[in-house]
Write a protein that binds this DNA or RNA. Sequence first.
DNA 1: TTATGTGAACTGCTTCACAGCA
DNA 2: TGCTGTGAAGCAGTTCACATAA
Lengths: 244, 244
Amino acid sequence: MPLWRAPSPCRTLREMGPDAIGVPARRIPEATVVRLPVYQRILADLLEGGITTVSSEELAERAGVNAAKVRRDFSLFGSFGTRGTGYDAAFLAAQIEHALGADRDWPVVIVGMGNLGRALANSDGFHSYGFRVSGVYDVDPAVVGAAVGGTTVQHLDQLVDATAVAPIGVIATPASAAQSVADILVAAGAEAILNFAPRVLVVPGPVLVRNVDLSIELQAVSFFLARRPAVPAWPDLRSGTGTS
Amino acid sequence: MPLWRAPSPCRTLREMGPDAIGVPARRIPEATVVRLPVYQRILADLLEGGITTVSSEELAERAGVNAAKVRRDFSLFGSFGTRGTGYDAAFLAAQIEHALGADRDWPVVIVGMGNLGRALANSDGFHSYGFRVSGVYDVDPAVVGAAVGGTTVQHLDQLVDATAVAPIGVIATPASAAQSVADILVAAGAEAILNFAPRVLVVPGPVLVRNVDLSIELQAVSFFLARRPAVPAWPDLRSGTGTS
DNA sequence: TTATGTGAACTGCTTCACAGCA
DNA sequence: TGCTGTGAAGCAGTTCACATAA
């Protein structure tokens, strides 16, 4: 997770004003937010397979969570299901898409074109759900000018106010450069920063920061393995829920 | 986050038996586990800067969390601090290192040598804290045989039981290949899988799975931005806590 | 009959506030 | 006096269990 849990405010629809279209005002738990993309992916798979209706149980199984959680998650946004039947996959997918803002255009700039930056710039996830890589930056002369993910790598100096048209900045630089890149992104008007560098960033209040640290998850793995009761050929308690 | 929160059991030290050396038996919350690497990083910085003692407040500020949380986190492992003074940075770092299992050797195999796989294989995080990339695999003939992160890329077919000496498998393949790679890793004896592919994996009970989905975090960003009260030039409530 | 939507209970994590110790 | 360690309170997220509706 990700990782560093954001204590984000997560404003309700009612607080949002005009955008709230008959949906009850609720605070959406962050835990729910990060499950929405998973449901969305599964619904897309189902639709592609010609399945038009799905129950909370079916969805829960595929998402590796429990059915009550699925129902609770959706109920936070309104009543999308039909009792006795389940959810209309297409309708549900559209609701989630809207909730995630995936029906809007989200230009993204990525700073740092090492392997990670290139992986991100080329990934499906950064070219769908409304996202669009509008610019990629680096400082290495050997990299500047190259074509990556549909754009040409520009020098970081060019970033000055590129974020005026790209509210989301992604930091994929080494840790040592992360804070100064964050400062540049903020100065250029970034509203949110997705930080892949292992550093805690300091940014002004209104800028949203989310951190993803690839090696923290690995360290969490070693933590759990280190205190495992010695590689048990232990009876299958459950098989199939994926996570855990 | 990382992301998909693992409802992991997180066994206590006492349950662990022999390894528990006078430390109180407590269940360590997952939330604490993922903070330990952050503390560890900060302590390393402090030590490098010649600072030998640190208070929970100082540490909290640098980690972007609150001081009570820092104290609670450490107290779960024992009483490491000195009242009136703070924590001995080196001692604390050693305790965290031990808790995370970073004082052991953790061979890791990585499957999928696209940009992400290469980023991981070359990253510091996979070559420190006890981790060691013992093998990297792919199926693309154009990639097999190349040198990456200190080893040579082998064909996936060679993986058969490489995990006998590498309990941790990392999946950095496209989503479509993730489940079959997971099956191979499990068959080869993997005890834990760190999955970067956007797919919920199905694995037998005792295998620990943690998922990191790079684009879910991006989608969470758009969720929060989408319901922001319209780019407020809004009074700094707080500046400096980084995450939010 | 079936499966949603939800009050209520529960579990887990965070934060407060202060006793206890250096 | 200063800062840790921790009961107790508070808050967030999950799960139960069932009323409700198709």
